[in-house]
Structure formats: C-alpha cells, structure tokens
C-alpha cells in the first residue's frame, strides 16, 4: 500500500457559498434556537454552533445569528466598541457584503439589523429593528461556579443567592458594586443573564427596549434573547441601587452629554480628550452643527476625521 498518495483533484476556481454563508438547514436549526430563546426570555438555549471562517471569540455567535435572520432586503450595521470602522467590525461587515451582498450602513436609524460587540447605539432602537450581540461567555454564574452542570441546575432552580454574595463582597470591600461591564441582569423576573461585555452604562437601554435583542455565543454554543418591551432589571441591593457611571464632561467633539465616552490619549504628557464611543451618533450630531469644547483642537480634527471611508464600499 505504498506509492504516491492519490490526491483528489479539485477545481479550485469554482466555489460558491450559500446566501449568508450558512446552509439553509443550519439556519433553520439556529432559528429554532432563537425562537425558543424568545419564548423563554434570558434562558440560554444550547445550539449546535458551526465552525465559522472567523475564529471563536471573534463574533462567531453573532455572525451565525445574523446569518440566520438576514434577508436580501435587510440593511446591516456592524459595530465593535460602538464604532463602525474598528478592525473587526470592518472584517465582519465585509463578510456579509461578500457572502450575502446585503446593503450595509453606518447609520443606526437606517439599519434593520445591528450586530454589535460591547456597545448599544446611543440612538434608541425601534420595533422594526433587531440588535444582535456577540457574546464571549454567556453564563453570568461562570466565574462563581465553573461547572456547566452546576450552573444549569442553579438556573433551573432559580438558585441565584451566589450572585448577590458577589455584589455583597463588592460593597463590603469597596463601598460600592465594582462590576463595570457584563453587569448581570434579571430578565422578566426569572432568568439571570449576562448582557455581554457591554459597559453597565448600556444596561438601562436593554430594559423595555423596543427592538428584539438576540445574543449569540458561538464558542460556548448558546443563544438567548430578550423580546421587545421585556423588563430587564440590573441586580442590586435596595440600599445600594444600580447606577451607571457618569462622565464629568461632554464629548469633546460634538458636546453630547449622558453618552458613553472613549478616552483618547493625545500625547505623553497627560493630554487626553473624551469622545463619543458611538461614532455614528457623534458624526450625526456634528453634521447637525453641535460642537464640543475641543472640536477646534488640531487633534480633534484628526480624530473626528472626515466621513466614513468610501473606498471599496
């Protein structure tokens, strides 16, 4: 049985993928999981996550969810860290442009589906929109209890005392709850859920949101959902109520207040400015004529840049 391997010959020139990459069979399986998730808000539905052409941990869950609900008429907005043109958002948007050929946009109001990692747009979403979250670790109890067998039991029995033990420890040690992102919530009075590593600043947005929220964790093979207008309560104590972080200053570019800001280091002498994390929101405000305290700064001109790159889009 020696001799040269009989290599199979391929026509490497061909190669067509199905609309939005996944085959229809797989999409149906994922849509079933999504429907189950919607029926049991906040419950993590196991699903047979596929191997995707991007690495686990880089949005495979979100991409599978988006691929399964995407239609030819949809308009997709892809953001990472609040911004449309961060590297991975660019990469994932390119994936759907290539495999589905759907329209994409930077404008929140124009999108029918928004896929996001770590942020929720500042502009409130509508009933005719869906937001898809990329989730790295879906299990809110994971760092208190590493075993899947045990955490599933704890969810089933609503055995969530341990969650408050952690919050208690935060207050006892720091005087306040020290969780700043992936802040646990209780959905519809039943399941404790991890809203993905969004800053807790965004937690109020997921409470009674008009849009359908879908959460996909590819590596951990879980999908969960929050239907429109569902009560979502951030865990807290009566005498230490949940509160979001506040920024002392408005956006340096557009002057927006009560929005989430990124800190931008300008030089090595402590120079810094704060700008909207939601880049589309910021641009829209500036287009409307709003200016922030640092808008005239040369650094701001660089950061604010022009409009989105038009090349190849």
């Amino acid at each position: 049985m020696t001799g040269t391997a009989q290599l199979q010959t391929y026509d490497f020139a061909g190669g067509e993928y199905n609309f939005a990459y996944l085959d229809e069979q797989t999409k149906r399986m994922i849509r079933r999981a999504i429907l189950k998730g919607i029926a049991i808000p906040g419950y993590q539905v196991p699903f047979a996550s596929r191997e995707m052409p991007m690495p686990y941990g880089w949005g495979t869950g979100g991409v599978q969810v988006t691929a399964s609900i995407l239609g030819k008429d949809d308009c997709l907005k892809m953001i990472d860290q609040g911004s449309d043109d961060t590297t991975n958002a660019v990469s994932l948007r390119g994936f759907f442009e290539k495999t589905a050929g759907v329209r994409t946009t930077y404008e929140t109001s124009e999108a029918t589906i928004v896929q996001t990692r770590h942020r929720i747009p500042e502009k409130p979403l509508r009933e005719d929109q869906i937001i898809v979250f990329q989730v790295p670790i879906p299990e809110p109890l994971r760092f208190l209890e590493p075993r899947e067998t045990e955490t599933r039991k704890m969810h089933a029995l609503e055995d969530y005392g341990l969650m408050h033990v952690k919050l208690y420890e935060d207050i006892a040690k720091n005087g306040h709850i020290a969780t700043t992102y992936a802040y646990p919530v209780k959905v519809n009075g039943r399941y404790v859920m991890d809203p993905s590593p969004t800053p807790k600043f965004d937690n109020p947005k997921i409470d009674r949101m008009a849009a359908l929220q879908l959460y996909g964790a590819g590596r951990e093979k879980r999908i969960y959902a929050i239907p429109p207008y569902t009560d979502v309560k951030s865990l807290d104590f009566e005498d230490y109520p949940f509160e979001v972080q506040k920024f002392d200053m408005p956006c340096g570019l557009c002057g927006a207040e009560n929005v989430y800001l990124d800190e931008v280091i300008l030089d090595d002498k402590g120079g810094r400015m704060f700008v909207c994390s939601d880049s589309d929101y910021c641009e829209e405000r500036r287009a409307e004529g709003h200016t922030g305290p640092m808008a005239a700064d040369p650094a701001a001109v660089h950061i604010g840049g022009g409009k989105q790159e038009e090349t190849d889009r």
Partner: peptide
C-alpha cells in the same frame, strides 16, 4: 464555608438566597 469570601458574606449568603435584598439589613 466559602473560604474566599468574607465572614459577613458567609453568614449573609443564606439570607440572600431566600431573597433578602437590603445590604444594610444583611450586614
């Protein structure tokens, strides 16, 4: 015991497990 959480949380855990949500009272 939970060896990695404080004495207060060790005693308070059962209270939180049955729904006590007032930090001051638990403490």
């Amino acid at each position: 015991l939970r060896m990695n959480v404080s004495a207060g949380a060790n005693v308070g855990e059962r209270l939180m497990a049955v729904g006590e949500r007032h930090y001051g009272n638990i403490r």
